[in-house]
Amino acid sequence: MSVKEMPQNWEPKILVFACNWCTYAGADLAGLSRLQYPPNIRILRVPCSGRVNPQFVIRAFQRGVDGVLVAGCHPGDCHYVSGNYFTRRRYLLMQRLLQYVGVDPERFQARWISGSEGPKFQQVVTQITEEIRAMGPNRKLRDAQ
């Protein structure tokens, strides 16, 4: 399939790296609370947002996701004390590097979402899905040309 043209009935595909202790619980709460959010996301549970290796993100773009969200505990709340502070540094650099090679900033985002923030999870996912829907499919870094 050529990725240059917009396929019919295209729906954005978004990968969410959710930390086990906060964001995943937040997503769970959103579900338990029957909060509606777009079905365009795929959640990948990681022990900590600090587990998100830069390679995971590039690989996701290679294999055809249209956006990546990294989400973890708020600063100070990390289950492992400081994992998310390291994520923050790495993410800040990675975000700029991806932009530098031409990836649009909307396609790679990060948020703090705690276990009690079901509504925030809903709101973030909805917002990102709409942003990416407006941008269309991602062709950059993809391995299908």
Binding site: Q55, Q62, L93, L97, L98, V101, R142
Partner: peptide, 24 residues
């Protein structure tokens, strides 16, 4: 499976960006 053996835009950019992050 970290990187594909094929030489193409996508794998080459994976290599470039990953290496850049690793030496940051």
């Amino acid at each position: 499976g970290w990187i594909g053996k094929a030489n193409n835009s996508s794998e080459n950019q994976f290599f470039a960006l990953t290496r850049a992050m690793h030496v940051a």
